[in-house]
Design a binder for these strands. Structure first.
Lengths: 143, 143
DNA sequence: AAAGATTGACTGTTCAATCTTG
DNA sequence: CAAGATTGAACAGTCAATCTTT
């Protein structure tokens, strides 16, 4: 394990600034549109994908790279807003499952165009299609 | 303003995951080494660069892309740890300046190898030099 | 004992209101 | 009134302890 080159350090600093700038654009767009934050969208999208059987919190934990207590608190807030339901898990008495409510599906649908516009403005409009693909490929190598 | 292509959306999701994964590695490395968080490093580096004349909080705000109250609270914590000093600004009675203390300089020096190793492990070791340069160039186009 | 999940207490972030000086 | 900066209160994230079931 050697020290990073100047180039690696520079790349990290730019990654830092770029991510935070895009992230801030998305959050601001959502807030300005009176919509919930991005973290809610991520949960709702995963839940919508699997339908009424729902997901276990630990599955969300893996998908969203959040700690257990982070998922617990996030679900608590989204549930309070009425966008999801927790229910007992039949297979495993320790656990529960979570599924999206109808109003949760509706809300996710409302959020998407706002979210999408922000991504397009922040990234899509700045790079050519070829560059976007290249960018995606490089990111894939890192994680 | 059109909707993003699939490719742009995919690139954003990867950017999200990659950034968060690298960021978490860096923070974990610092914490495990008993060092302060990355946000402190950023402040201390900027302050070290300008020497004893220091920086105004609003200048840090621009450099670090933080809100005014965010800088205020961050400086408060770093000052309490003894790594920086606030002092009245002679040019502008409304403002103040902030400079690094000797122990702040020392601390920044201690943090760097830990930080550097984490960046190298997360990014440098995953990409060739050419790829790092490409990556950097693409990021520059976005922000 | 280990896995799934939650919670109290603490730390950090955000919002809106405030204070001071230009 | 604008700009620079801070602060109380509300909100979100983290740590360690806890509870239940496997």
């Amino acid at each position: 394990m050697t020290l990073p080159t100047e180039h690696t350090t520079k790349a990290w600093i730019r990654l830092f600034r770029t991510y935070n700038s895009v992230f801030a654009s998305v959050e601001t767009a959502l807030k300005d549109a009176g919509q919930p934050p991005l973290s809610w969208y991520d949960v709702m999208l995963e839940l919508e994908r699997v339908g009424d059987k729902g997901l276990r919190p630990f599955e969300l934990q893996d998908k969203l790279l959040l700690p257990q207590y982070g998922v617990s608190r996030l679900l608590e807030r989204i549930e309070k807003a009425g966008y999801l339901e927790r229910f007992d898990c039949e297979d495993d008495g320790r656990g529960l499952s979570v599924k999206l409510t109808d109003s949760g599906k509706e809300k996710r649908k409302q959020m998407w165009p706002v979210y999408a516009k922000a991504i397009e403005a922040s990234i899509g409009s700045k790079l050519s299609l070829e560059e976007v693909k290249q960018f995606s490929k490089l990111l894939e190598k890192i994680v």
